[in-house]
């Protein structure tokens, strides 16, 4: 029993990371109206941009209390957020916007995003090499929360940050003009445009928000496990898409709930089945959602 509780806790941590990334993915899916297959590679880019600050520049800083990394992670995260958002906006300007203006279908945009993902993975390998890396080394003590269930301070921070990001995203979507415009564009782009909303600026804003979310999710992933050039593509792409579809496309809260569902099922399943089959769990959830509720558990609107 306690093994299942332990796996559930791990699942919530992994699910927070999936959910945070999926919130960004569902925003671009709902507002830009195509499945962005480069999203997971933007995540990997976020990991490595933070590594550039704490590793390559050596700005690790003194350790932050019980956490495994130092204060240098704060500027590193800001750098990663700025960098990933910039790359996301630039790819939209150079690739997606011309295709959009030409009236290309959403499938063509999905194929283009595949090409961008390949380029990102190759670029990350060229700069940082194919080997695995970590932000820090050394062992960090875990806290006992109840019974013999342990959790690391890093992992508590991951859950707390995901909750904070969800609150911030709520405030952005429901308390700001950009948020209102984003919801309007997601609902009906033509109508939004006719009501005087500059939908291209909304799309740009969406890429920045999605870029920030996925950059933070990437750093969390690397803190929880490690950095690898294909980490996002191999381990996060399917879980994130499963979370988005379970939650309903364009629905960030659904994506977060879907992420937690995928994360917990993935980890708890290892109690009964070989870990090698773990990647199949998000896929099974995805197919079940597609067949039973293709509009998602929570409806597909922001």
């Amino acid at each position: 029993m306690s093994e299942i509780v332990h796996l559930t806790v791990i699942g919530l941590i992994v699910g927070s990371i999936i959910g945070l990334g999926a919130m960004g993915l569902t925003l671009t899916y709902g507002i830009l109206r195509f499945a962005n297959f480069a999203h997971a590679d933007l995540m990997t880019l976020g990991m490595y941009l933070a590594f550039f600050v704490v590793g390559d520049l050596g700005l690790a800083g003194a350790e932050l209390g019980p956490l495994s990394f130092g204060w240098g992670m704060i500027p590193a995260a800001l750098f990663a957020i700025a960098g990933v958002s910039l790359v996301a906006v630039a790819t939209d300007r150079i690739v997606f916007r011309p295709l959009r203006d030409r009236g290309s279908g959403f499938l063509t945009l999905a194929v283009a995003s595949l090409g961008i993902g390949i380029m990102l993975r190759a670029a990350i390998q060229i700069v940082w090499g194919p080997a695995q890396r970590r932000y820090t080394t050394g062992i960090h003590e875990a806290w006992t929360i109840f019974g013999d269930v342990k959790i690391k301070p890093d992992q508590l921070l991951i859950i707390a940050l995901t909750a904070a990001a969800a609150v911030l995203l709520y405030l952005l979507l429901y308390r700001t003009r950009l948020g209102t415009a984003m919801r309007a564009t997601s609902d009906n782009p033509q109508l939004a445009e006719a009501s005087g909303i500059d939908t291209e600026r909304v799309r740009q804003g969406t890429w920045i928000v999605a870029g920030a979310l996925i950059a933070v999710a990437g750093i969390m992933f690397a803190v929880q496990s490690q950095l690898r050039f294909n980490a996002g593509f191999e381990f996060m792409l399917l879980p994130m898409f499963a979370a988005v579809i379970v939650g309903g496309i364009g629905n960030p809260w659904g994506a977060l709930a879907g992420g937690l569902l995928v994360g917990v099922s993935q980890e708890v399943s290892t109690e009964w089945i070989d870990t090698g089959f773990k990647p199949a769990i998000p896929f099974v959830i995805l197919i079940a959602a597609l067949i039973l509720r293709p509009r998602g558990l929570f409806g597909s609107t922001i």
């Binding site: 195509f34 499945a35 297959f37 959403f106 499938l107 999905a110 191999e234 792409l237 399917l238 898409f241 579809i245 090698g276 089959f277 990647p279 199949a280 998000p282 896929f283 995805l286 197919i287 597609l290 293709p294």
Partner: peptide, 18 residues
């Protein structure tokens, strides 16, 4: 249509891991 894209990229990953 795009659900098929996600499902097919998934099936390839799953079959390799099986």
């Amino acid at each position: 249509d795009d659900f098929l894209a996600i499902a097919t990229i998934g099936i390839a990953t799953i079959l390799r891991s099986i």
